[in-house]
Design a protein around this nucleic acid. Sequence first.
DNA 1: CCATCAATCGAACGAACGTTCGATCGCATT
DNA 2: AATGCGATCGAACGTTCGTTCGATTGATGG
Lengths: 225, 225
Amino acid sequence: MAVDEIERSFESAQPADSVPQPLEGRGTFDERLNRILNAATVVIARVGYEKASMRQVVREAGVSLAGIYHYFESKEKMLFLIQFRTFNALLNGLREKLHDCSDPLDQLRVMVRNHVGYFAANMAALKVCSHELDSLSGQSYEETLAIRRQYFELVRGIVDRVHEQHAPGSSADRHVATMSLFGTLNWMYRWYDPKRGRSPTVLASQISSQFLHGILGAPAASETE
Amino acid sequence: MAVDEIERSFESAQPADSVPQPLEGRGTFDERLNRILNAATVVIARVGYEKASMRQVVREAGVSLAGIYHYFESKEKMLFLIQFRTFNALLNGLREKLHDCSDPLDQLRVMVRNHVGYFAANMAALKVCSHELDSLSGQSYEETLAIRRQYFELVRGIVDRVHEQHAPGSSADRHVATMSLFGTLNWMYRWYDPKRGRSPTVLASQISSQFLHGILGAPAASETE
DNA sequence: CCATCAATCGAACGAACGTTCGATCGCATT
DNA sequence: AATGCGATCGAACGTTCGTTCGATTGATGG
């Protein structure tokens, strides 16, 4: 048993004909798993993955040190579950919202708003996803890398279409622009506090505006110095 | 003894009237210290500060485990020396280059070029400075924070003057713009390899151009949505 | 009423870590 | 030749870590 818990995130492991009321101590298996993962996310976001000890996590989660190993087989799988779920939620949320708009400019605004909004709602989880990108190894690393690549290609495609349809002769470099955008978004956890300052919606529109002017405002001629 | 080695970075600790030829095994004290710090920088950049063990560092540096403690008193002071020297070099290099130009636009281009150029020349050190910002504590943390703040205020001032002198009515947010710029620069270590791809000078001009268009291209009226 | 099984826990294990201790080596001054 | 000292090292110490073991609990199904 390893990774298959992810797919049954919204259904208990008990047979379907049994009574669905809570049978165990506090909630279903998945509810308790979520509670543990949330506690782990907070601890890892606070002190970093390597420095975060399983003893800190179980103290925050309210379970015993040995008891936590009934929910995942190792500390690394715990981090994998956190990153896998967060990246998937971010990616799937963006895909849904992109169905409603086809203009590349709108798509880019939707992408930034989705990212900033998800950050504001799950700060610890997104910090763990931004800061612990190299903390996994082997199969777990490859699996999160695959999702990250999907997210990247999706955004990269939007940037490309913005460039082609709205500034076909611009001298702006689309790869540098995309990487700058990811830098801006992944660096947010260092300074942005949604509770103190502008709202996520306002920040998202500011970032979108500056980014779009950055690639659309570039002159077509060779003015590079 | 703790931090005073920093100030004598270009002068040996031996009295000035003694013969300046190498007396110890390999070079002067400061040369050997630099060699050890460079090895530590490479190891920390590769696996992260917490996961980097002193045994890995001494293997890379070619000294014994106990012998390294004659150059600093702890692992944390070792990281402090790396970050302190790197931040200082980055900040002092920028201050020097800013003496030659007074136009805010040129100043911003100089700042980006200085940062990208220093990154290309010292990738491991700048990665450690970007990724291990919270790995120090106490006095060491406060001391590096003070330099980081000076660097930030210097850049923030340039952005402010760009805004005031070249786009006085722009709706762009200067704080968000500054943070986006730092995000772009501090995220470079995740994707930019100067040996494969554009040169540091080209990348710097691309980043500068997109950033300046981003804040100068914003309309004066309230077009925020 | 008994057998089963998932869930939980206290206790412990082996490994790896940062750091220290005591000794040794080699140069520089007396 | 003797002395002092900075530099270096092998070996060890004490701590913390992730993980495992064995036992207990409590609800479930026959």
